[in-house]
């Protein structure tokens, strides 16, 4: 037992103290990433490029539904909805989101994007699919009195393909897209 305790203490120092300290020091070579990829505007932090935000104003592109509490996109308490596939609470929520999406986007064409009807796994998903962005273009353009083509070009510009052509799915960062929209000036 005595040996077990001594070895436990020694290894705790090695992997619980030395190891994270070495990683922290080495990570200082990548300060932007190590500090949370924060986006600053005029000196103030407006968010992290990796963490989604909630958008309610129709002149912004909207993010996916989020199950975090007490508010959506609570970046201090990540969670999925954990609703099962046959849970009525899931299908009721989807019906309500579909109704609200149609109401807010009367001029939208194409199918309802599934990612705007379902909650993400983290509750902090920073992305929507390119089709979910395109779906919202007519609304955003009308609210900002911009030609739809201008907004569509911007969406194209902010659409990321698969990483290195292979990994993951095409996606649009909602926060970056909305920041770019604001910088257009209207």
């Amino acid at each position: 037992m005595w040996k077990a305790m001594r070895l436990f203490l020694v290894l705790t120092v090695l992997v619980g103290v030395v190891y994270p300290a070495v990683v922290t020091v080495a990570a200082m070579a990548m300060p932007y990433r190590a500090q949370g990829s924060l986006i600053r505007q005029n000196g103030a932090v407006v968010g992290s490029e990796l963490i989604g935000q909630s958008f309610a104003n129709p002149k912004y592109f909207w993010s996916r539904p989020s199950a975090t509490a007490p508010d959506p996109y609570n970046a201090s308490a990540s969670t999925p909805s954990n609703l099962g596939p046959t849970n009525k609470a899931l299908t009721d929520a989807v019906s309500e989101r579909a109704r609200a999406l149609r109401e807010a986007n009367p001029n939208a064409t194409g199918p309802l994007p599934e990612d705007l009807l379902t909650a993400s796994a983290s509750g902090l998903d920073p992305h929507i699919s390119p089709q979910a962005a395109m779906y919202q273009v007519p609304r955003v353009a009308a609210e900002r009195s911009l030609p739809e083509a201008t907004v569509r070009t911007l969406v194209d510009k902010y659409t990321e393909g698969r990483q290195w052509g292979i990994f993951g799915e095409p996606r649009v960062s909602v926060l970056k897209l909305n920041l770019a929209l604001d910088s257009l000036g209207r």
Binding site: Q53, S54, A56, W62, R64, P65, P72, R97, A104, L116
Partner: peptide
């Protein structure tokens, strides 16, 4: 209303 569709309030 509409905000519930995607993201809700903040």
């Amino acid at each position: 209303g509409g905000s519930k569709a995607a993201g809700g309030g903040a």
